[in-house]
Simulated scan of single mutants.
Amino acid sequence: QNSPFTGFFGGLEDYYALLNLRDGGVGGVKLTWEECETGYNSDRGVECYERLKNKGGGATLVQPLSTGITYRLIERATADKIAVMSMGYGRTDASDGRVFPWVFPIVTSYWSQNTAKIMYIGSKEGGMDKLKGKKIANLYHESSYGKETIPILDLQAKKYGFTVNHYPVPHPGLDQKATWLQIARRFKPDWVILRGWGVMNPTALKEAARVGFPANRIVGVWWSGAEEDVIPAGKAAVGYVAAGFHPSGADFPLIQEILDIVYGAGKGNISPQRVGTIYYNRGLISGIITIEAMRTAQKKFGTGKPMTGEQMRWGMENLDINP
């Protein structure tokens, strides 16, 4: 609750609230959900999971919203037969459902995003062959999330001939002065990849400006590319680019419906000013995918029935949201 990620849960819970208010739930079943404050701490995440997994008849799905917690829950959720959804985060190789049948890193992954960032840098340099001899600094949050792409970057460095140095930033990331001096004065990279989280992001942009490193040579992860990440940095963020996999803005019929029905009834889960922001829309999309998987499961196992973890896993595995 004390991070920019409140936007994510605002969007997610607003969508659930809309379905309850407008439709009476999903297939005649009212939606219920539990919150648990983890503080982005993996031990607390495990405690939350164990305390809540059997509540209300048992969890249909768990969303950790943390790569570290996702790693810790894989074996537990598999044993408990509860599907784990990690949209755009978590353990990338869990995409192989033959090995990880209960984990769903859907839409995209950190490895795919990392490839997109390297291709973007290559395009700015005039082609992938122009990466040879270039230097890239990988500034990462010192956590499972931050470390997820290090092996991939090392392999890509060998493939394309660039040099990559990795710079960890301890949580929460407020002290980066010495790190940026190493980056700008010693390594002198052509590009910086910002793999930050929370307050680490605007701090990094401010420190880059302080040492004279141009913002338009910094490419961020999609957890470093929301309003909460750049507005606090002010002018230091001008020119900065970050990855993404969905649009922002409130000019969508669904969001207008949420404002009319949910916020009109005083049932909103976040400040109305944050509706339509990057993290809010990401949570909304996560909710849409969750519910469509639930509808898929109900078609097979029975409309009007709450879905078990096993049934939800089938729904996730057989989800098809193509028009």
Rank of each mutant, 00 (worst) to 15 (best):
L284H: 02
D251S: 11
A137V: 06
L31I: 15
C36W: 11
V29F: 05
A242P: 04
D175S: 13
T303D: 05
W33Y: 15
R72H: 09
G266D: 02
Q63A: 08
G7L: 06
S143D: 11
V211L: 07
Y280N: 03
G302M: 10
K30Y: 01
G315M: 00
A204P: 05
V84Q: 11
W222R: 00
S109Y: 01
E37M: 09
M128I: 14
V262P: 01
G25S: 09
S66F: 03
I255N: 01
A250H: 08
N41L: 07
A297H: 03
K81C: 02
G220D: 07
M85F: 13
Q298F: 04
V219L: 15
E227L: 02
I285C: 05
A208L: 07
A79M: 06
T303C: 01
P172V: 09
Q273N: 14
I261W: 02
W102E: 00
K206F: 06
S109G: 14
G287D: 10
L31C: 06
I106N: 12
P101K: 09
P168V: 10
I270T: 09
A236T: 08
S109L: 10
F245A: 06
T115S: 12
K53H: 13
L52H: 05
R295N: 06
V62W: 00
E228Q: 13
N54F: 13
A184H: 11
K124C: 05
D320V: 12
L18M: 08
A297R: 00
F100K: 02
R295H: 08
K305S: 09
R186P: 00
Q298L: 04
Q298W: 06
I289L: 14
E317G: 12
S123I: 00
T60E: 07
G11C: 07
I152F: 07
I183V: 15
L181R: 14
C36G: 12
K267R: 14
R295A: 01
W191F: 15
T149K: 02
Y120E: 14
G88Y: 00
I278Y: 13
L205I: 06
W191Y: 15
K299S: 12
I288E: 09
I121S: 00
A242D: 07
E34R: 13
D129L: 11
A17L: 02
A265G: 07
K53D: 05
F9M: 11
N281Y: 08
L174C: 03
A178Q: 14
M87V: 14
G220E: 03
Q1W: 10
I152S: 10
K132N: 10
M200Q: 15
K267F: 03
A208H: 03
Q311C: 05
V241W: 06
E34C: 11
T92A: 13
S66C: 02
W102L: 08
K134V: 04
C36R: 09
R295S: 04
I74Q: 11
V26K: 05
P323A: 06
